Amino acid sequence: MKARNVALLMTAALVVYLFLLADRAFALFASGTGVGIALGIGVLLLPILGVWIVVVTWRNGLQIQRLSRRLDSEGELPDVSDLPRRPSGRVDRDAADAWFDQRRAEVQADQQNWRAWYKLAYAYDIAGDRRRARETMKKALELEAADH
């Protein structure tokens, strides 16, 4: 199953859960008691927050996918298929570090190149540093948006 289909399935399950949670909030409102209404407000905040997180996550995913397609059409999409792998399938740590150093040098050489930032984000990802990968991808998205 493609990752996109899994994401759609998980999002659908989350939407059902958020709907049921909102329904519980309205049931608490209907109790008419001060405590029930206060709890209802608290419970209703959860689906509102959940919807916001889902929207932001999907928006970011679609923007990253757009950059990926653009790089692919330009023949510049990062390819790590030739890097050695561990039995788990992850890229070997030394190989990931060497590939990362090359991508970091590309960014240092051209700080305004969104393509270099995208590749650096990918390098962080294969090195297992997801937090920095997200931050770096945000920078790539900002630079690409400013490039238009």
Results as ranks from 00 to 15, higher is better:
N5S: 12
L20V: 06
E106R: 04
Q111E: 15
L9R: 09
A25Q: 02
V16G: 07
A12P: 06
V16K: 06
R59W: 13
G36T: 07
R70S: 10
R93V: 14
A12F: 15
G75T: 07
S73A: 12
G36L: 06
H148E: 10
L62A: 11
L8Y: 12
A140H: 02
T33Q: 04
A96L: 08
A146P: 04
Y124E: 02
L14S: 13
L83Q: 07
G32T: 05
Q112K: 10
F19T: 12
M10D: 08
A109M: 04
G75I: 08
V107M: 09
S73C: 06
S68R: 15
R59G: 02
F29T: 04
R104A: 12
G32K: 08
A30S: 14
E76F: 10
W52R: 11
R4K: 15
S68H: 13
Q111F: 13
D94H: 03
A7D: 12
A145Y: 06
A140Y: 01
G40K: 02
A95L: 09
A7T: 07
R130W: 09
K139E: 05
E74T: 01
I37C: 01
L143P: 06
A98M: 08
G50T: 05
S81R: 07
G40T: 03
G34H: 04
V16L: 15
L46D: 01
Y124N: 00
D82H: 14
D129G: 03
R130S: 13
A123S: 12
R103S: 11
R131P: 00
W117C: 00
W117A: 01
L39E: 11
Y122C: 05
A98L: 11
W99R: 12
R130V: 13
V55G: 02
D129I: 14
A25I: 07
E142F: 03
V54H: 05
A133V: 05
G34P: 02
L71C: 06
G32D: 04
P78F: 02
A105T: 10
A27N: 09
P47R: 04
D72V: 02
L9S: 06
P87I: 05
R66V: 04
V55L: 10
A146W: 00
A25W: 02
L44H: 01
L62D: 02
L20T: 06
I41V: 14
V15R: 05
L20K: 07
P47Y: 00
V35S: 10
N60D: 12
Y17Q: 09
F19L: 14
S88G: 08
A38P: 03
